[in-house]
Design a protein around this nucleic acid. Structure first.
Lengths: 215, 215
DNA sequence: TCGAATATGAGGGTCAACACCTATGTTTTA
DNA sequence: TAAAACATAGGTGTTGACCCTCATATTCGA
């Protein structure tokens, strides 16, 4: 089976080099190339390649914007981001937008080729380095673990209320929802704060807003 | 090259079935199996398999806990979560813990095999269905885009203050930090609320807590 | 069975956020 | 240059979060 590709990168040497490498793979067919994001978007919408390989840092439109716009225009193309950046935020943004592959430029050529194969088969591929990076993120995990430990001390009613707080409900609204007194809700809130060792102004609101996904 | 595997799942039929399927792959060698998480952890620490395939929902210890504990004990084993759940939160938790693969039980057998190969090569593999799921998450992305659009209306001073709010600072503290009047800070806060179309109690605090990562 | 934890409710107070208003000097822009 | 936007600052008032103490009924574990 043949996979049609387009490449977008503003560095000609890198772009041509990559195209050359991909030529050695018989099942890949590079049907277009672009030196900036605007051009890339145009080619994608005109030629509908199976896979688009995009640099993040390009003139006119960045790779992520190209991807975002193309997907909004119902493009069927799948996207690989090929970048020098291994910032977690960029990676997360890429995942949110809906890219199918994320590979670092200094990864092995075989990684890039594997990535294209995976993505062409509708799989998701993330470069080993990025995986490493995500694993290193365990600092965050430790915090989460501590929170989990504290959350164990919390009773059923308290958890019910904590959830409602995280859903932006005020004590009055929670009271109305649960058919209990507003005062009771406030007492529960206080108890939660004590158990979670939260203090200061609006501590529970901040806490609930931050960990609403883990409740 | 040979890859040593262990399988942990509390459903014997599923477990035996999977082992049988994997036997047909010559380069896989199943060196252990477990019906609960405790057993699984023991086998992993004793035999150091290349890859451990874990169910999430198991007695004694869940798959994610096994993974967490093993990694804390410096295990070199790489982990694949094989589950029926496609909840985003579980997936995110798995990624945070540092699993290398995430596959749904109702995925094709070839997906599972591909996953093992990828993971054995130190790649990260995520099941196509989950990818779909993450892509569907674009509802969230649209919100993010709207927030970004609104954030553009915000001035430099306002952004500076918004950042400090997201860092848990009160108006008084911000005033002291920036050598301006607390009243000025409050005015800026009000203006931010208007521009971001935030209303209700503590709206800015909630907003800042939620999008602190995007500022 | 007895004490501890829990769920419920109340009264008291403090403080910060926010909403609305005015005002003045500066900077940017049309 | 005139108008708009911005940063600064103040006033006044409402509301809700959080803190403290107290009280009662129920449930649950030792």
């Amino acid at each position: 089976m043949n996979h049609t590709l387009i490449i977008a990168d503003d560095h000609p040497v890198f772009r041509k080099g990559l195209i050359n490498i991909l030529k050695s793979e018989k099942s890949f067919q590079v049907i277009g190339e672009a030196a900036d994001g605007g051009e890339a978007l145009k080619i994608i919408m005109q030629h509908n390649p199976n896979v688009a390989i995009l640099d993040i840092d390009m003139p006119v439109l960045g790779g992520l914007e190209v991807c975002r716009k193309a997907l909004k225009l119902k493009s069927q193309t799948r996207f690989i981001i090929l970048t020098m950046f291994k910032e977690e935020d960029l990676f997360n943004e890429a995942m949110n937008i809906g890219v199918s592959g994320y590979v670092l430029k200094d990864n092995a050529v075989s990684d890039i080729i594997n990535c294209i194969y995976s993505v062409a088969q509708n799989d998701l591929y993330i470069s080993p380095d990025i995986k490493q990076y995500l694993t290193t993120r365990k600092g965050k995990q430790i915090i989460d673990e501590e929170i989990s430990k504290k959350l164990l001390k919390i009773t059923t009613s308290e958890l019910r209320i904590l959830k409602l707080v995280s859903e932006n409900k005020s004590s009055k609204e929670i009271a109305a929802l649960l058919f209990i007194s507003q005062k009771t809700v406030e007492n529960h809130r206080s108890n939660i704060c004590r158990k979670m060792e939260l203090e200061g102004n609006y501590a529970l609101i901040k806490f609930a807003a931050e960990c609403k996904n883990s409740l």
